[in-house]
Design a protein around this nucleic acid. Sequence first.
DNA 1: CTAGGGTTAG
Length: 577
Amino acid sequence: MANLVLDSFLSRSKSIAQAKQIQAHLITTGQFQFPICPSRSKLLELCALSLGNLSFAVDAFRQILTPSTNDWNAILRGLIQSPAPVDAFSWYKTMLRTSCRVDALTCSFVLKACARVLARFESCQLHSHVVRKGFIADSLLGTTLLDVYAKVGDLDSAEKVFDEMVMRDIASWNALISGFGQGDRPNEALALFKRMESDGFKPNEITVLGALAACSQLGAFKEGEKIHGYIKDQKLDTNVIVCNAVIDMYSKCGLVDKAYSVFEGMSCMKNRVTWNTMMMGYAMHGDGHKALELFQQMGHAGVTPDAVSYIAVLSSCNHGGLVEEGYRLFNSMESCGVTPNVKHYGAMVDLLGRSGRLQEAYEVINSMPMVPDMILWQTLLGACKTYRNVEMAEVVSWKLVEMGSKHDGDFVLLSNVYAAHERWTDVGRVREAMMSRNVKKVPGVSYIETKGMVHSFYNGDKSHENWREIYGQLDEIGFRIKEHGYVAETSCVLHDIGDEEKEHVLCHHSEKLAVAFGLISTDEGTPIQVIKNLRICGDCHAVIKLISKIYNREIVVRDLMRFHRFKDGSCSCGDYW
DNA sequence: CTAGGGTTAG
């Protein structure tokens, strides 16, 4: 059989039986043990990739006396997609010990494995190999390298690789923009997006995805609208992934109706992600009924729900207060072919906790078929706090401490509970646990977009150019809400300070600063929208409710979990969050 | 045609 015929046979093979035939042919003709045998490498790749049978490929590989670079690469590539991409590292190390040459592709595949397992240290090591072996000028590899750095969360290194690249093309820009957009530098993603045009690159569908992710994160709807305009102009909305990202952006920027009109008017085929994204949008806004309606419609449209669809409906039941409906859906999952995972159990714990059924929530966690993670316990802890169940809060908090939590909130509540009961020895134990594992406090930050500019505020921030006016506005707010009977709820502040000072700390939470800035920098009656990186605190929630009434403003706050729409003194979340 | 950048999740 001529190799041309063999290759076409290879590319049409759909089963291991056929692969075995080809292997047998290579062995009988003696080609299988050639130092270089392209058909053999292709065969390995076919088995490891398209046929998804890595172990067959590995068995065949082990029979090769002197594997070529391409043979190694085929296995490495298969490992990236396997359930254990870490194994790529030991294979790579073994390869380095042989006399076989490592090429740029080898590095590329191992780097991809680093991204999949979020291996920062290994990414760095691979970077030095790339330099030492002289591949650093390879622009494709350079883009992979920068993308991997971004994916493992090292944005500084990603940026450095980008800056030092000899040849940058659209993919290099896209990798950095989406790295920034999905990471913690969304403002820079938007800046790069604007800069690339002046560098002579035209944003394509992948570029806009990165920029939209940045807008979603920032809640920058003016920017998001502009990008949506560009997408329509350039007809990039024929791509379903782009449409999904637009829907997600509008939802996350608080414009769920706009999200729906995009959803409704799509010119391309909706896929399952489209439906899931729209349902998540309604979930975030607390509109459980609309999400459930979509869930029905999705079924009628012949799209079967997957694990994410159930997360979407369960969390919309949560945010919409539809406890019984959520319970029913959860119980129907198995019969619809979806096995609940830890996130579904998380949604159930939230649902039960929200309705005050703490004991049942506790039992769900203890009877789950998988190992409970920290988020589950944190969810239950939140419910304990809402329902002031001190006994369970204590049990759950120590569980979290045992599990090695480094989240300050898990300690603060416990410490407060003990302090309230004047159990100072226990307060000391908690403090000690916090010190010994250097619990880091995630700083609260809120964003507000006015006139196309995103302003950010930290707690007690005085770096804004108008900070004096903002604090003046806060003082006025403080004065007016007290007239309406407001009393500071200080229990959520830790620290050994007097009540008056606690009040002061609460006063300057980032979301209050952003709202105050919104009040003075926008026209009367204009809705104010704020994005916060943490969950909104109880005091801010109470204060903003009053502001919405006293100043006659609609105020929308997106926190880590959902949207709060404040109007006439009440909030769309119904005071449970 | 062995390579790089892409959507939803408690």
